[in-house]
Amino acid sequence: MFEARLVQSSILKKVLEAIKDLLNEATFDCSDSGIQLQAMDNSHVSLVSMNLRSDGFDKYRCDRNISMGMNLGSMTKILKCAANEDVVTMKAQDNADTVTFVFESPNQEKVSDYEMKLMNLDQEHLGIPETEYACVVRLPAGEFARICRDLSQFGESVVISCTKEGVKFSSAGDIGSANIKLAQTSNVDKEELAVTVEMQEPVTLTFASRYLNSFTKATSLSNVVQLSMSPDVPLVVEYRIGEIGHIRYYLAPKIED
């Protein structure tokens, strides 16, 4: 028996919003420790890794490990049926071929359940090695979304350069070029408004702006985004999911031919 109850169904809606551009379907691996999802986008350029810890749920029970392959389009339709203030519970029997979503209004006057068929998906689990990154940048998630949106008007690629002074985002294309420099915040009153750089060595890498833009669909999950970079390894774009977990996007850099 698997059962996970979350008072804020909006978290699940936001998680889905954050992955459904990149993935058509995904396997939710449920165990005693929580719910994990790892999947490559269809073009194998980026990897999505999500973790929701069991202790972050209001109720969590998982007697046996269960992998639930879900069509994210169908899941989106079902979650649209939940009001933001509803309490959501996901339930499945061991070896089940369906999952049930139960939505309860805060006053318990309306209770709905939706059963969704599960899919058998080929699992391509990749090992993500522990990496010491040369640069780790934290900045307001809304600012990062704005930068990705603005720069994607110029070209297909965004160059991210990180030095101890700050971080620069650049793009160039047919209409011209654009550079956005963010300096490290000197006085930090509110952490969520700060730009911070932890740097071992300067790094400059080039990424596809289309993917960076897709990652920013997670912006509503967190005030802060963390970018981790090292030469010749994938960028990690990380958003915390409240006190319950995180979503990380790995994007391979572009290389010169």
Binding site: V45, I128, T206
Partner: peptide, 14 residues
């Protein structure tokens, strides 16, 4: 500009 790597080239299959 540039070629896009396949993410599998970086990460190890479990």
């Amino acid at each position: 500009p540039g070629r896009q790597f396949d993410i599998q080239e970086y990460f190890l299959e479990d």
